[in-house]
Design a protein around this nucleic acid. Sequence first.
DNA 1: AAGTCTATGGCAATCGTTTGCCATGACCAT
DNA 2: ATGGTCATGGCAAACGATTGCCATAGACTT
Lengths: 363, 363
Amino acid sequence: MVKKTKEMLDMEPSGPLMADVAKLAGVAISTVSRALANPGRVNEKTRAKIDDAAKQLGYTPNAMARGLRVGKSNVIMIVLPGSLYHGASQIVPQVLQAINVSLLESGYTLMIANLARDEASERHILNLAFGGTARGTIILASKLPEVDGRSLAHAGLPIVSMLLDMSASGVPSVVTNDREAVRAATAELIRLGHRRFFYLAGPEGNYHDIERFGGVLEAFQAAGLPETAVVRSGGKLDYQQSFEIGLRAAEEFVRLGYKPTAVIATSDDMAISFMSRIGEMGFGVPEDISIVSFDGSPVCAFCFPPLSTIEQPVEEMGKAAVAMLLDAIEKTGEPAPARRVIPSRLIIRKSMAMPRVGFHTSL
Amino acid sequence: MVKKTKEMLDMEPSGPLMADVAKLAGVAISTVSRALANPGRVNEKTRAKIDDAAKQLGYTPNAMARGLRVGKSNVIMIVLPGSLYHGASQIVPQVLQAINVSLLESGYTLMIANLARDEASERHILNLAFGGTARGTIILASKLPEVDGRSLAHAGLPIVSMLLDMSASGVPSVVTNDREAVRAATAELIRLGHRRFFYLAGPEGNYHDIERFGGVLEAFQAAGLPETAVVRSGGKLDYQQSFEIGLRAAEEFVRLGYKPTAVIATSDDMAISFMSRIGEMGFGVPEDISIVSFDGSPVCAFCFPPLSTIEQPVEEMGKAAVAMLLDAIEKTGEPAPARRVIPSRLIIRKSMAMPRVGFHTSL
DNA sequence: AAGTCTATGGCAATCGTTTGCCATGACCAT
DNA sequence: ATGGTCATGGCAAACGATTGCCATAGACTT
């Protein structure tokens, strides 16, 4: 039996330790620790000596050792609603981007907890939460993970919800004004003269669907239109299958006898595939049909024709979510679960126009 | 001076510990540890008792304590080339998705190290590497971060490069056949009758630009066309500004006297904005100009007209990269830096057609 | 010059796990 | 019945940092 343990370990040095820095600088380990972290506790000259030594050795503190000792990590975990790529919408990447920038500024690290929401992923998320890896959570457009009797709600972690309003369940939330934004877009279509609408829904009963459709109805009410002025399509598929939703909606559209003149799509992807398909079928946008959609994907500007869309303030929302989360992390006191609404903005492009008189009977 | 430390700490219990599980199960801590991790080292009955106790308490092992003790984490870090959202391309999200799925299956956790490549981000990446947070790295389409005299190359971490071939510098790489794919696409355009081309470049001197443009020239050579048969555009902006590249290229295109009949764009985003802009200017695709691009974004299918594109095998590439990385992590032996090429696939859609005779003189 | 105060540095315990080594008991063979 | 083997469980020392508490030295006051 060869005594190889010690030698083997020596082979992989895992870098210089704080003790090495201390030795080189000629001070105690604790002094190094304080010099590197605490302000003002260490003489300026000593600090300089230590900094030099650390730089010379290329010292990097071990994050796990520190985390273990202080009982907390500096990792913020993002829980995504599901798969990351579907269609052309960049909402999630944009949000991640904004969150990451804000977190970095505050010295935190972003960790993507999941890219799916199957059982294995949920378990994994909970392990990150309960295992002390994450210090806080931002959850995007979805309910809290829950499996094996454990729920993220009871992990003792600060949580902020984005895109989905969960403030009623006690989770601070950052959302946009889905309802008002859609109401405004609908009102604009009404103003242009449209009186008959086609609404492309996401999953039925979903928060966003309720809010957005509610916005349509509110606009109708304000204009004195009956609820029957809108035909709903979709409602079965998830937002992540938006291209398919748009295609099915197009099939449905051509079968309608008395055709709507305006389409309200609840995501850009739906609008894009819908517009493509009805284009192939000979309908023109905006001559025959006006379209407005939701998300504000950059690519909408380059569609044919350029697509009107409701731009979500993802960057501000991300910043706000991080601010709320850090606030909850740093203050121990339980603040009242807040709800922050950041308004969306309607971008009007060529896909919206006045309806052609008599169009809906022309086919 | 109130003695509050102990009480304060007790207030935030940070969940049950292994010791609690041991007590409840009536065994030693070490037995719990072995039961939960090692196979076969513990009696089946004991193990069952321990599992029960753990479940009953909702016990989750502390990842940092384990990581500290065993000297390694189970976090794989992804280094991105820069900002995550620009345009409609879903390459990066798709890759992340594929990587994440593969990693989860092997019990690893994915961590996005950065969403930008400024100095602060590079420093952060290196901290993650040298601070023991990451166990391995997958780097996407970019060079190794390097700052303050530290380089990712010397962090002692296994690294795999994706999309960019760095095998010559000793980094195992997973790439697609940029050159051959573009050669094939160009050859197809030549076969259709095109003899004069417009090439939309990414940043000049970039690996992808060299490879892709090389593919164009190879196709020319095979067909006996001179190198002057192609006009290069762009070369100044980054791939992340692809929409802008396409717009500028369109401006350039209209100013060309003797017009190309086919466009080879090195990203879908360029192609999309280019097509949109020249459409506004009265050029038709594919009647006046054929277009093919690179990336295989799903949205291309719904462009007007549907856009031919070279689809990168992102999913397979992601899987391959993870496989290579885990291999390097598990085997201690230094394997020869490998290079794995996974072929792309040309998707032909309506944006490619035979050139209209005499078009290039018609304006 | 002596006493007091403050700034700084050092010791050692601690975070929650893993794991080498040893002790114990069961089981088997002789 | 006795000795040997093996499976199992327990003790305690790590892993690398942080931090409460105390010691010390220098500055300041009178």
